[in-house]
Nucleic acid binder design. Structure first.
Lengths: 138, 138
DNA sequence: ACTTAAATGCAACACTGTTGCAAATTTATG
DNA sequence: CATAAATTTGCAACAGTGTTGCATTTAAGT
């Protein structure tokens, strides 16, 4: 598999054992250009164990391999993180965009994080979720 | 109760029957300056029916009385909407701020919505969630 | 007051996610 | 390469959150 090096990169940096199952999960993420639900992962997996999947997702989130996207009234989705994300600290300069036509959620990198001037509030991280129509459906 | 007019305002505008239970729920929201979880509502309610609460929250969300705030790894919270919110279309020019000290989630009104220039994406609504330390705890 | 429509309360259920434990897999060591 | 130690996996059982159907109660209109 040409992917081995890539997996090793992801896993060895985070000190995660590169098991067959985990490699499969990463492959599924890499095959998509948008965030996916556990349902979509389970469909891609075929026969599998539900509990191991939950544990794997949790581990990946804690180690900055993927991040969780929660929008009101939507199922949770997950997407691969960029390199910079480390152990549970997801410092993304990106936003999430939910297309109301194709219903997909995309991660979009921002050239710079927007600034919010909130007098005495100290902002440590932010999350921006947009809804509308994506470039593909437009 | 001096609140009657206020309830009538909220309920009649949205075509919601002002039942005892619903008025109680609104009172609970009005007594707090931050977003609350169903757990907090249930504690404030005392003896009550779980199902009716869920149905009431759903109705309130659909009719723009309250909005739901979902942050990754957090319980859902709910807060009263501003006047402008109508039937399920929550067009807030505000953001949500989770304080990592007091752990409360506050709604903060913005003077203007931030602009995101995403070429061919059409942005119809946005949601901004910040984390950090609130003015009170700072 | 009476009729109609909507809201409530209860039981049962569905979905999402977790915990404990035994079996299997991976990694490190000789 | 074989073996031992540690981690991961799969299963069973469970917990929390939210929903549906239905009978009873409450509110609204005449």
């Amino acid at each position: 598999m040409q992917h081995c090096c890539k997996f090793m990169d992801i896993f060895s940096k985070k000190n995660i054992r590169p098991t067959t199952f985990r490699k499969e999960i990463v492959s599924i993420f890499e095959a998509k250009d948008h965030a996916i639900t556990t349902k979509e992962i389970e469909e891609a997996l075929g026969k599998h164990d539900r509990i191991t999947l939950y544990r794997t997702l949790k581990l990946f989130i804690e180690n900055g391999v993927i991040h969780e996207i929660t929008l009101p009234n939507e199922e949770k989705t997950y997407a691969l993180c960029e390199e910079e994300c480390a152990d549970g600290e997801h410092q993304h300069e990106h936003l999430h965009f939910k297309c109301e036509v194709c219903e997909r959620i995309y991660c979009i990198e921002l050239p710079q994080a927007p600034q919010f001037d909130l007098k005495n509030f100290i902002v440590k991280s932010m999350e921006i979720n947009l809804r509308g129509i994506c470039d593909h459906c437009n």
